[in-house]
Nucleic acid binder design. Structure first.
Lengths: 342, 342
DNA sequence: ATGAAAGCGCTAACAG
DNA sequence: CTGTTAGCGCTTTCAT
């Protein structure tokens, strides 16, 4: 497998380098007949363009913007910032610049405003952790109109014109949670608590959907209590769960579909019932995981952030037509039990 | 963030390009004082080497060899070949050539022979799906002596001098299997079957270890039957499990730690006991997964091959000092329940 | 519509 | 030990 260069292609086709380049990059100003001659030469010689040389010569610089809820909102978001930053570092020497813009969590107007300020010539693409909101949807649609590729990450907004949603299958996650809880309850009857951040978060809403569906259909002996909105904030989830535990002595399981697990763990610690409630949660910090897994039977659903961010970057590059086809893998959810903590 | 080139570094340090290059690439023959001056300049200017230019100039061509059990051995191995081939394709235009060499599964001598024939100047690194065997261990050590980086993949051999084992935590996988089975059995007593390919396969041995450990300690009401060696072959696993099912009417769970699941599924289909046995298996094909998940309660442990192969390539490139440090992620095991099939 | 020639940023002979 | 210089393969003005 020899190295065929544009030079040999040019020679073989009886044209100059410039012409070969024009054909290769589909630029106009070449006679059809010439195009064919060049393409024939490419085929004949089995020419493969050298990606490094091309990148060097073009001096290309790609810019992508990640729009995320502010770090510090909760550990998931803090970690997400970190993950994006890490990915940015890794891509930097491939001439891919990645920046992050913050918005106050749950603040639709802030998010919409941020999106409104994005210009086509500034960014080659935008990845956004969205939320359900007409305002937000509208701005995403406008971005797409301005030909700025947009993908949603972690939490979607539908039906907007964003190119893809990249993230775990949240309905499946909810179903798994219900399945685990139902099996572990082993036929006992009692009530089940479900906590989300806020129902405008598409991902949390999806999880609830899947959860309810399986719980109702397969475990009718378990009564689902009204959903609690904890704003992904331990200062809210803690007290709310605490009073729920007090009000429902028969509560035997908790599904935390959002964040704010520190509050939840706290409330559970103070609870005295035996056996302690079954808990299924989504998490990110190792600390939360350890605390959660120490209960009776508890499972943690883990979402591969790194992969999600990598996928987002790949997708955006694909949309910006910098890099060819990207077979995106679905983002994985891992289930952690006590026995497989890393 | 401007573009700093080696040229500016040279100027700022008061040396020539060649010297900068020497320092940058850690080549010898530079006075310590000069090295410091250059490094200072690099820091000061925030110089980042352009990977494309470097790759272009070096004309580097990396060659890595994957040594695997022949495809067709079982679907896992067939898929592994395919995964390696796919990775090879993706790396090809980055001037990384990946080849595969086959050996007959379970044939220590064949594997050892293959390894013995590898020359240092032919390959920049070797990834091998190994097995426990003095012969194999010896050849791996010899390769390392000849300064050919070696990593093991999927199944390790210890204590050889290979650089790293890349693969899932098989003891953890075994523990999870036991945990799931124990929980699902819900206190019933009965016997449990464990099938592996062969005990010389390090990964299967590890899974057994973790499995036994948790089963004994936490679920003493479950009796573990003698381990069956099924050679990862459905023609063997099927009949063996079938006779086991006949001999043990109280058998209530099966852990398939190896391959050959088609045979296992077949045997379970013919079995009439109610409820059907709990099954935990490792798998690869979607078909096996679907079949397995249709039982009473069954879980499938899924191993991320793509990631494993990518990790192997990264690790080898790191060892070949082509690419800097790669923070390898542990390879994930995903648990599939009926509700989260992709 | 096509060609000639000058780089892109880094590396590696070859001198000194 | 350090500097000079000629590329690597592709892109891109600027002529023709």
């Amino acid at each position: 497998m020899q190295k065929i260069t544009v030079f040999e292609v040019a020679a073989s086709a009886g044209v100059s380098l410039a012409t070969v380049d024009r054909v290769l990059n589909g630029r106009k100003g070449v006679r059809p007949a010439t195009i064919e001659r060049v393409q024939a030469a490419v085929e004949r010689l089995g020419f493969r363009r050298d990606a490094f040389a091309a990148a060097l010569a073009t001096q290309r610089l790609e810019r992508y913007l990640f729009v995320l809820p502010a770090a510090g909102t909760n550990s998931f978001m803090t970690a997400l910032h970190e993950t994006v930053r890490a990915a940015a570092g890794a891509m930097a020497d491939q001439r891919v610049a990645i920046r992050v813009a913050d918005y106050t969590a749950f603040d639709e107007a802030a998010l919409a405003g941020l999106l409104a300020g994005i210009a086509r010539d500034e960014w080659n693409g935008v990845a956004v952790v969205a939320m359900e909101s007409p305002l937000v949807r509208h701005e995403i649609d406008r971005l797409v109109e301005r030909e700025v590729p947009v993908v949603t990450l972690v939490s979607d907004v539908s039906p907007s014109r964003r190119s893809t949603f990249l993230g775990i299958d949240n309905k499946a996650a909810g179903r798994v949670a219900a399945s685990l809880i139902g099996r572990m309850a082993g036929g006992r009857r009692g009530s089940v608590a479900l906590l989300v951040g806020q129902m405008t978060l598409h991902d949390h809403a999806d999880r609830r959907l899947g959860f309810e569906q399986v719980l109702r259909r397969e475990f009718p002996e378990l009564a689902l209590l009204p959903t609690i909105e904890g704003r992904d904030d331990s200062a809210v989830t803690g007290p709310k769960l605490r009073s729920l535990l007090r009000a429902h002595p028969d509560l035997l399981a908790v599904y935390s579909a959002g964040a704010g697990n520190r509050g939840i763990i706290q409330a559970l610690r103070e609870d005295a019932r035996r056996p302690p409630p079954i808990v299924v949660a989504h998490e990110l910090t190792a600390h939360a995981r350890d605390a959660l897994l120490s209960g009776t039977f508890t499972a943690v659903l883990h979402q591969d952030q790194e992969q999600e961010v990598e996928n987002a970057i790949s997708a955006l590059r694909g949309l910006a037509r910098i890099d060819a086809g990207f077979p995106l893998k679905p983002v994985r959810t891992q289930i952690f039990l006590r026995d497989n903590v890393p």
